[in-house]
Design a binder for these strands. Sequence first.
DNA 1: ATGAATATGGGATATCATGGGATTTTATGG
DNA 2: CCATAAAATCCCATGATATCCCATATTCAT
Lengths: 161, 161
Amino acid sequence: MLKFLSTTTNKVDIKGRVSVPALFRANIGPDGFQGIIAYKSFKHPCIEGADTSFMEQLSERIHSDFGFFSDENEALATVLLGKATQMSFDPEGRIHLPNEYLEHANITEAATFVGLGNKFQIWNPPAYEKHYEVQLEIAKVEAGKLGPIARNLSLGNKDRG
Amino acid sequence: MLKFLSTTTNKVDIKGRVSVPALFRANIGPDGFQGIIAYKSFKHPCIEGADTSFMEQLSERIHSDFGFFSDENEALATVLLGKATQMSFDPEGRIHLPNEYLEHANITEAATFVGLGNKFQIWNPPAYEKHYEVQLEIAKVEAGKLGPIARNLSLGNKDRG
DNA sequence: ATGAATATGGGATATCATGGGATTTTATGG
DNA sequence: CCATAAAATCCCATGATATCCCATATTCAT
């Protein structure tokens, strides 16, 4: 599930267009819908995006009888599927962010794309910087629960340097 | 889990390219993504690298140990997956280090690759020398607290035959 | 020593992000 | 059903950067 990795900041032009990072596009592949699925995050002032397979996965889990989702997650998934918008790539690999989305995320002249594995987020760059600091503190606490692989990453404090 | 062993120093050319040591490349194998996943060390002024399986394990742990939409899941993904970058091999087995990475590690004309088993580090060569000395001193002290097996490793105390 | 694998250098080429004019589509009012 | 403005999309151009491709040097194992 390593579709979306890394963080990039791209410009948003006067028409509301942004380039989706090439590495993200590469993992969407040449088949199927050429674009992303986006929705306004419930938790944060940011946009969340994914490819169609992520949405299909959500849909399958909701409709399966095997209870992959808790009641809360099922509610979330249902609302997401209802609110999600398809945004196609233009020939240059850009998407168009409607005003509603720009306003929700306070995005004006630039946007930061953050890869989260199976999905990604789109932030106002300074807002992302603040958000990251908070996430890092949470991650430091949680990393220990992931066993040796993540402990290995040494999320603790820097040494003299 | 001994994919990456030994220490090698290679040149970094004016374009920011470095050869990944052949022994490291050999352990990445011909299947899957031809390159490495790198991130700026959270602890040291160096770059850390691994193959995709390392990151996939991490990603799976993150997604399976926490709920699909949980705060913990998101924080870890933001910090660990958001900060990781894919770096593909060119036909000669080199990777391209972006400026952001070169600056973090103070790398200019050469880079030292240090194997650490399932991952490796990339250092500015003099910085690595200093780092190594410090690690060695810590290791000597720690070895004394361990049993005879570790003491037999003779970590540089040559005054006692 | 000798050949093979590895590392390095640099010119040519391709890709990416970006900007802007032109054209098409969509929504709205007549 | 058409006219019109607004919005979205296409198409092309540009610089910066990354990648390819081939030539050469270096290292390593036998």
